[in-house]
């Protein structure tokens, strides 16, 4: 197995830019590479993405592999797994990391099965075991009620990392690195699926992922109406509105507001959870927030275990009074 060397990260691109997760992965990949005394490389896959190579280096990669091909314009399982199989067989990294994104959760398992190795998904922490030199993969399980540490002895060691968990390295344009092009060499007959349409959810105002303040509502709001008051509060705080899963399931708010294990992962400075019980699957998406405030009528609600401050009471009474006071304080 010694011929496998180095740490490689999958540098995801969204709308022509490096995705935030790509820079986060370089932060954690750099550490693993340094611990192994090996190189950190990144792979960029897509169409017309070559221009991003210097940016990838600025964020900390020693080497960038580029696979640029018109057939790779859209992410598709068949084409991307094929390309990554080729890249990995050529470069033979010891560790390959991706983000737990729509792409990562699709690409990593299939690629791992193809390469006869095993992936760990949605990891919170990665480290090198000093004795075995294997990658230790810490991953939340049972919806976040527990965490497990896994290893796998077959190479490459593949893991996806939860977004907003790792700190990126500083962007440094003086960093030097090597750029290597790899031909996609795709066999179009192997691409069985077709992307017919991409539909983006319309978001008004600040994007959830970028918001420093999030006011989030749960099933206890009872209806779409309940969210109106949260919108007002969010506006006063220059934040965004989010939601646990039930309000999305019930159609009170759009799916795009869904925060949690299978929704968005957010880490704002301030997360105000209103009428949310604090199920572990919801906390999976917001426990990285710097300060959680809980408003719930049930003093036993689990959310109070995660919160810094809380008020026990009916949101219908709490939110208007809170909003008024916040307005007053911000005005004065």
């Amino acid at each position: 197995m010694t011929e496998y060397k180095g740490v490689m990260i999958y540098s995801e691109v969204t709308e022509g830019k490096l995705a935030a997760i790509s820079t986060e992965l370089k932060g954690c990949g750099r550490k693993l590479a340094d611990d192994l005394g090996q190189e950190l490389s990144a792979v960029l896959v897509g169409s017309g993405i070559s221009g991003l190579a210097q940016e990838v280096i600025a964020f900390g990669a020693d080497k960038v592999y580029i696979v640029d091909d018109p057939l790779l314009k859209d992410y598709q399982t068949d084409s991307y797994v094929q390309v990554m199989e080729k890249v990995i067989k050529q470069v033979m990294p010891q560790i390959f990391l991706l983000g737990q994104t729509s792409i990562g959760r699709d690409l990593a398992p299939r690629l791992a099965f193809r390469l006869n190795t095993a992936a760990s998904m949605d990891c919170l922490e990665l480290a090198i075991d000093p004795d075995s030199k294997l990658m230790l993969r810490t991953k939340p399980v049972y919806g976040g009620n527990a965490q497990a540490v896994f290893t796998c002895e077959s190479y490459p060691q593949i893991a996806t990392v939860r977004v907003k968990v790792m700190s990126p390295l500083e962007r440094d344009t003086s960093r030097q690195g090597e750029v290597i092009t790899i031909e996609a060499g795709l066999d179009p007959s192997m691409i069985k699926t077709k992307v017919l349409e991409k539909v983006k959810a319309e978001v008004e105002g600040i994007k959830l992922e970028d918001a420093e303040v999030i006011v989030s509502g749960g099933r206890g709001l009872g209806s779409a109406e309940g969210f109106k008051e949260l919108e007002e509060l969010a506006k006063v705080l220059k934040g965004a509105v989010g939601s646990s899963r039930p309000p999305c399931d019930n159609g009170w708010v759009p799916e795009a507001l869904h925060i949690g294990l299978t929704g968005k992962v957010v880490a704002p400075d301030l997360y105000i959870a209103v009428a949310i019980s604090g199920a572990s699957q919801h906390l999976a998406g917001c426990s990285g927030s710097k300060n959680i405030i809980a408003i719930n009528k049930d003093p036993e609600a689990n959310i109070f275990k995660e919160a810094r401050f809380g008020v026990v009471g009916d949101y219908r009474k709490v939110i208007p009074a809170f909003t008024d006071k916040v307005k007053e304080l911000l005005a004065g």
């Binding site: 095993a118 527990a146 965490q147 026990v312």
Partner: peptide, 24 residues
Amino acid sequence: RIKILKLFQPIREGKCEIIEGESV
């Protein structure tokens, strides 16, 4: 293929300060 080394429950600090008042 995956070995499990450890299973544990993350410690929740649980130091929430409940804010009180004469009324809600």
